[in-house]
């Protein structure tokens, strides 16, 4: 008797989020990046299609990073001083298809740059590079409520991915994103219920679920990775079972977490940090990550190759 395999029949699917708008769509980007759309658990192609490869965004800051270990700052050299040059290097030298700029310099403790300054920077950045952008505030709620509307307007029509909306602070940013045609990052603290609740709150304000990307908050390899891994598996199972409010793609801040690990700070052994970032990404891809924000060019290269291999049959 022929062996009967077990093929799950899923009724739901992950929504597709498009980041970046090209000319014909009212923006100035050279291309758009699509994430999401999975109709099966990670990489079970025989069960359902996974139309979009996970994407990797290079992370850049608007100020010189103060806590990046040598192993990860070395490849960027002097460009770390200048966000425009830094961005350009990622695109030219490392073929970045999407960039993530974190406006840490607007934080009251890290320079307190004004919303106008940050808006100017985003305008210049949009001229300097033509790839789609992910734009993050500094994480200071009060200041983000001033900065994010300003940069949202400055990038109007470019269909950026902007974040982060959190449970206690989402209204201002959702309103801006809605008005200026962007997508939003909904961030929850490794908590599936809050993630769902926040998606509902945001969509209640009129922003389509197809414009939300979830940040489940990850831990690095060895630093709580398994919590995010399981939260992501549970969320994805809910999405595939038909829960539209859980069907947003995931963004994972891999570089930020991996390079905080003690293991990644061994300056005499740069490979240790690079593989820490690489394997953090690998495991999360197997949990359903759609957009990975990463730091080391070599880790990005290795993860890209891995993704290409996953899609090779």
């Amino acid at each position: 008797m022929a062996l009967q395999l077990i093929t799950e029949k899923w009724s739901g699917e992950v929504s597709v989020v498009t980041i970046g708008a090209a000319n014909q769509e009212g923006g100035t980007r050279s291309h758009a990046v699509k994430i999401g759309g999975e109709k099966s658990l990670p990489y079970l192609f025989k069960e359902g299609s996974l139309p979009n490869k996970p994407q990797i965004a290079f992370e850049i800051l608007d100020i010189m990073p103060s806590d990046w270990p040598n192993a990860v700052s070395a490849p960027y050299g002097k460009t770390l001083n200048d966000p425009l040059e830094w961005a350009d290097k990622c695109v030219r030298d490392y073929q970045a298809g999407i960039l993530c700029v974190r406006l840490l310099g607007s934080h009251p403790d890290f320079g307190n740059k004004s919303p106008e300054e940050e808006a100017q920077l985003i305008k210049k950045l949009l001229k300097k590079v033509s790839v789609p952008l992910v734009i993050l505030g500094s994480g200071d709620d009060a200041k983000d409520n001033l900065v994010l509307p300003a940069i949202s307007e400055a990038a109007k029509g470019e269909r950026c991915l902007i974040g982060s909306a959190v449970q206690d602070n989402y209204k201002t940013i959702v309103a801006s994103v809605l008005a200026d045609g962007h997508n939003i990052i909904a961030e929850s603290p490794i908590d599936i219920n809050i993630a769902k609740q926040l998606n509902i709150l945001i969509s209640d304000m009129g922003l389509a679920l197809e414009r939300i990307v979830m940040n489940p908050t990850i831990g690095a390899l060895g630093y709580g990775l398994e919590y995010a891994y399981s939260i992501m598996e549970r969320s994805r199972l809910a999405a595939l079972a038909g829960d539209k409010t859980m069907a947003s793609p995931f963004i994972c801040f891999v570089g930020q977490e991996a390079w905080r690990a003690k293991e990644a700070k061994a300056d005499d052994l740069p490979d240790q940090g690079i593989i820490w970032e690489t394997l953090t990404a690998t495991a999360l891809i197997q949990a359903g990550a759609d957009l990975l924000v990463m730091r080391h060019p070599k880790a990005v290269e290795k993860v890209k190759e891995y993704i290409d291999n996953l899609f090779r049959s």
């Binding site: 390899l221 060895g222 052994l269 490979d271 240790q272």
Partner: peptide, 18 residues
């Protein structure tokens, strides 16, 4: 050893009792 350490750490994570 740097690659093996990262794999053993991943195994430790995945096999931790949730």
């Amino acid at each position: 050893s740097w690659a093996v350490l990262s794999l053993l750490t991943l195994r430790q994570n995945i096999y931790t009792d949730p």
